[in-house]
């Protein structure tokens, strides 16, 4: 087996176990892995940003293709750094004003089109369909998101949730009924989101455990077993030393 793969298996296993030690309690091994994670992530982001922004978006178009108009965003970006000079800090407002102005301008028509009109259009669908021969039909297949029954449920859900968030009128009478229905829909959605998130995390957990099982193979030198032993020993020693330094009261 190549040395890089072997070293990679030991490093990945060690770091995985160090993070898992947090399930016991906050400890130096976890803190070490946590700071390694922040350091590597920031380093990685900086390298990727350098490659994307400095090389591809600035250096190549400007120096290779001669597109000097990019001096404008460079100037605006540099103004941001004026925050480090208290007397010139106000200049950074110009950069923020540009970003916020462009962002707001871009957002208005696109948000109206994609998130308001499109959503309303998809909600207000025909509640009955036209069957062959001109007769009206009402499909009740709940597994088909496009069925008429689901169109009714969607409409009721959207309207009732909007009613729940509409505070300009008092929630009494029919409005109260609509708002209460909205709460039920919201609770179902929150529950579904929770269940979905838990299962996504479980999937990640299964991935990590699969790696640990794979790295228990003799071909890698059984890093999972040796490092698990080393981690547990370190935690026991750390706990005992801590108990000696801070004996429990009473």
């Amino acid at each position: 087996m190549p040395f890089e793969a072997l070293l990679g298996a030991w490093v990945a296993t060690g770091l995985t176990l160090f993070i898992f030690t947090f399930l016991y309690k906050d400890n130096p091994l976890f803190k070490l892995a946590e700071h390694l994670y922040v350091g590597v992530s920031v380093g990685y982001t900086i390298v990727k940003a350098y490659d994307t922004v400095v090389i591809r978006l600035i250096y190549e178009p400007m120096v290779v293709q001669g597109d000097w108009s990019l001096l404008i965003p460079l100037g605006i970006g540099t103004l941001m750094l004026a925050r480090y000079a208290p007397k010139a800090a106000w200049m950074s407002r110009i950069a923020f004003a540009f970003i916020v102005g462009v962002g707001s301008g871009l957002a208005i028509p696109r948000v109206i089109s994609s998130y308001i009109l499109k959503q309303v259009e998809d909600t207000i669908r025909p509640l009955v369909s036209m069957a062959q021969g001109g007769a009206l039909a009402f499909s009740t297949n709940i597994l088909d998101p496009a069925s008429n029954l689901n169109a009714v449920v969607l409409l009721v859900g959207v309207v009732s949730v909007l009613f729940y968030f509409f505070f300009s009128i008092e929630h009494t009478g029919p409005v109260r009924v609509a708002a209460r229905t909205g709460i039920v829909f919201l609770m179902i959605a929150f529950g579904a989101a929770f269940g979905y998130t838990v299962m996504a995390r479980m999937s990640l957990l299964i991935g990590r455990l699969t790696d640990l099982i794979e790295y228990a193979d003799p071909g890698y030198g059984r890093p999972s077993l040796w490092l698990l032993l080393a981690t547990i020993t370190t935690l026991v020693v750390w706990s005992l030393r801590r108990r000696d330094e801070h004996p429990p009261e009473g």
Binding site: Q119, L154, I188
Partner: peptide, 14 residues
């Protein structure tokens, strides 16, 4: 996910 959750997401988006 496709109907109940979608209706709430849609209302929240709006």
């Amino acid at each position: 996910l496709n109907v109940l959750n979608a209706s709430v997401r849609r209302a929240i988006y709006i």
